[in-house]
Design a binder for these strands. Structure first.
Lengths: 343, 343
DNA sequence: TCCTAAAATGCAATCGATTGCGCATCGGAG
DNA sequence: CTCCGATGCGCAATCGATTGCATTTTAGGA
C-alpha cells in the first residue's frame, strides 16, 4: 500500500555501487562516468526515488526555503509582493514559506522563531502595525541569516530593505489634487510612528507648501485607516465649517470609506471633494467613481527583495552591506480626482 | 559576529551529561530528574539554544509542516481558508507552507513534488482550473501522506475533501431571484467539467423547475468568470430580444462585470435586472448597489480541512477512510437583488 | 549492611544525503 | 616497460536530534 520511499542507498544497492556515487551521479558530478549517470537515473526512475530535502538540508545547513512574513496575504499588495518574490526564488531552486501575523506582535515574534527553527535560508518580512521593538529581527541578523524588510521598514535596523518612495508618492498625490484646483486638502494617516506614514505625511505637507498652500494640522486625521476609520474621519471633517475640497488618504480602504460618506451625504466626487488613495488594490478601479491612487509596484518590490536575498546568500560569510532599494511610486489618475479633462 | 548555533551537545558538554539526557530533559521526559531538567533549561537559555527542526524532522520522519496549495492567495476566499487552517494547525504545533499555482497545471504538479521533497506531513489543496489529471495527488496518497482537497474537489479521487453544498447555494440564490419576481434568470458558469460549476448549474436549473420556470439553455453563459468575462457575457445577453431580468453568476467578479455593463447601458439594478453572485469577497459589499452573494464560510472550511488532517495523521498506518465534509452555504441578500422590502 | 526494584542517565545506532580524501585503474608519454 | 596524471569510484565522517536498550545510581526494605 504505502510505497516505501527509496533512498540513494537503495539505488546504490541495486547497481552495486555506493551511495556516494549515486549522490554524485544525481548532481552531475564531473568525476562520474556518463554510463554510471545514466544507470543511476534509470534506477532512480524505476524505484520512484524522491530526494529527501530534509536530509540534504541537515547536511548542507541550508533548506532552500525562504520564509516570508506578512501581516495578511489577502491584500493584493502583499500577495503581489509574494508573487514577485516567488518569481525570482523559484528560478533559483528556492521555495517560499508564507506566514501571516495578522498584525499581531506576539505572532510575529513566534513566527520568526518558527522560521528560524525550520532553518529557512532567509526571511523577507513586512512587519505588523503593532511592531515597535525589532529585537526579533536583529536576532535573525545575528544568526547570520539574511533578513530583508519590505514596504514597512526601519532605518535604525541595519538590514536591507525595499520600499517605495513614500514621500514622493504622497507628494505626487497631493500635488495632483492641487492641480485639480483643490485648496483645502485633508490627509488621512496612521499612527505617526510608522515611518511610511510619517513619510507620506511629509510628502503631503511639502507638496502643499511648495504649491503655495498652508499646512493645516487640523486637516490631518489620524486613524487605523480601515474602511470604518475612513468613514469616521470623513464624517468628522464634514462637521467643520470649512469643509475640505480634497482628501489624500494613506490607504485604499480609508479613501473608500470617505467616498461612501461623501456620497451618502450628497456630496459629489470629485466636484465637491476630490479623492486620492494609496495602494492600487483592484477594487479601487471599480468603485464609482473609480479611485485615483498610488501604485506601489508590489511585484517589482518582491523581485527586488528576492534579488537582495540572493546577493546576501552569495557573499555569505563576508560582511554584507545592507542595501536599501527605493522604488518610484506611480500616480494613477482615475475619476475620483479628475476635475479637469486632460488636453 | 555570527553567533554559533548551540546544539544539544553543547548543552550536554557544559553540564557534563549526554545529549540523550538533554534531549529528554527538553521534552520533559518522565525519567529525567527535575533538577537536571532545570539545569538543562538554564543552560539552553544561556547558550541561546534553538532546536534544529530539520534534524528532528530527519530523525522522526516528520516535519510538522502542512503544505497548502491554492491557485492564488490574494482572493479573500482562499486566504480565509488558509487562516482557518492555520488556526487549527498552530495549536497543534504545525506550521503551514503556502504555495500558489496561479492556476497553472505544471506549477501545480511541481509544487506537489516540492512539498513532497520537503517532507511535509500533509497537503491541503484546492486545485487549479486547468487540472484534469489528478495523478500528482494520487502520488501523495500512495506515499501515505494525508491529502485533503477543499472547495474544488474530485469525487473519483478517493481522498478526503471539504466543500460547500454548491448545489444548495445555487438553488438558494436562484430561488431568491424567483421570489424577487424574476422570470427570466440567466446564469454565468465556467467550463462545465469542474464539478463545483456543474453543481451550481444543477442547483440553478432545479430551482427554476421547482418554481415553475423553464430552464433555457440559451440563458446559460459559459466563460472564465473574471470581470471582463462577466462584462462580455452581459453584453451578449443584452443583445437578445428577451433580455433576462435576473442573473445568477457562479463567481463574484463575473457578476460585477455584469453590473458594470448594466449600469453603463442605463439599466437599473435590481429593478430591471436583479443580480446574485458567488463568494462573499469583501468588495461585493461596497459596490453600488452592494451585491447579493453566497457565502462559502471559508474559515470553517479551513478549520475542517485541518481537523481532517489531524485525524488522518492520528490513525497513521491503519487504513483511513476518506471523509467528505459538506458545509452549508449562506445566502447574503444585499441590494443588487432586493426588489421587495422584507416585511 | 545487603539486596532489589525503581529512578536517572549513558551508549550507540539511526534518519538520508553529502563530501574530503584516498585508492584503484587506465591510457599515453618517455 | 615504467611512470604519471587523469578518471572513476568507495570509505567514512558529518549534520543534530531521537530512542531502544543497557548501565549506573539511589532509595528503601529486609
Amino acid at each position: 500500500m504505502k510505497k516505501e520511499k527509496a533512498t540513494i542507498h537503495d539505488i546504490a544497492r541495486k547497481l552495486n555501487i555506493t551511495a556516494s556515487t549515486v549522490s554524485r551521479a544525481l548532481k552531475d558530478h564531473p568525476r562520474i562516468s556518463a554510463e554510471t549517470k545514466k544507470a543511476v537515473q534509470k534506477a532512480a526512475q524505476k524505484l520512484n526515488y524522491q530526494p529527501n530535502n530534509i536530509a540534504a538540508a541537515l547536511r548542507n545547513g541550508k533548506s532552500n526555503i525562504i520564509g516570508i512574513i506578512v501581516p495578511t496575504a489577502d491584500r493584493t499588495f502583499f500577495s503581489s509582493v509574494v508573487r514577485g518574490i516567488e518569481e525570482i526564488a523559484n528560478t533559483h531552486k528556492y521555495n517560499v514559506m508564507i506566514c501571516q501575523t495578522y498584525d499581531n506582535y506576539e505572532k510575529e515574534v513566534s513566527t520568526v522563531e518558527a522560521l528560524l527553527n525550520a532553518r529557512v535560508d532567509g526571511i523577507i518580512v513586512s512587519h505588523g502595525k503593532e511592531t515597535q521593538n525589532f529585537d526579533h529581527f536583529l536576532k535573525v541578523k545575528e544568526r547570520g541569516i539574511p533578513i530583508i524588510l519590505f514596504d514597512r521598514s526601519n532605518d535604525e535596523l541595519e538590514v536591507s530593505n525595499v520600499v517605495i518612495d513614500d514621500f514622493l508618492g504622497a507628494y505626487k498625490a497631493t500635488e495632483h489634487l492641487v492641480q485639480q484646483g483643490c485648496k483645502r486638502i485633508a490627509h488621512f494617516t496612521n499612527a505617526r510612528k510608522i515611518s511610511i506614514f510619517k513619510e507620506r505625511l511629509r510628502g503631503y505637507r511639502e507638496a502643499l507648501l511648495d504649491n503655495g498652500l498652508k499646512f493645516d494640522e487640523s486637516l490631518v486625521v489620524d486613524s487605523n485607516l480601515q474602511l470604518e476609520d475612513g468613514r469616521n474621519s470623513m464624517e468628522q471633517l464634514l462637521k467643520r465649517k470649512d469643509i475640505p475640497d480634497g482628501v489624500f488618504s494613506s490607504s485604499a480602504y480609508g479613501v473608500l470609506g470617505a467616498m461612501q460618506v461623501l456620497k451618502e451625504k450628497g456630496f459629489k466626487v470629485p466636484e465637491d471633494v476630490a479623492l486620492v488613495g494609496f495602494s492600487n488594490e483592484p477594487f479601487t478601479s471599480f468603485t464609482e467613481p473609480p479611485l485615483s491612487t498610488i501604485d506601489q509596484h508590489p511585484m517589482r518590490m518582491g523581485n527586488a527583495a528576492a534579488e537582495i536575498f540572493l546577493e546576501e546568500i552569495a557573499v555569505k560569510d563576508k560582511k554584507f552591506i545592507p542595501q536599501k532599494i527605493v522604488l518610484k511610486p506611480e500616480l494613477i489618475i482615475r475619476q475620483s480626482s479628475l476635475r479637469k479633462k486632460p488636453n
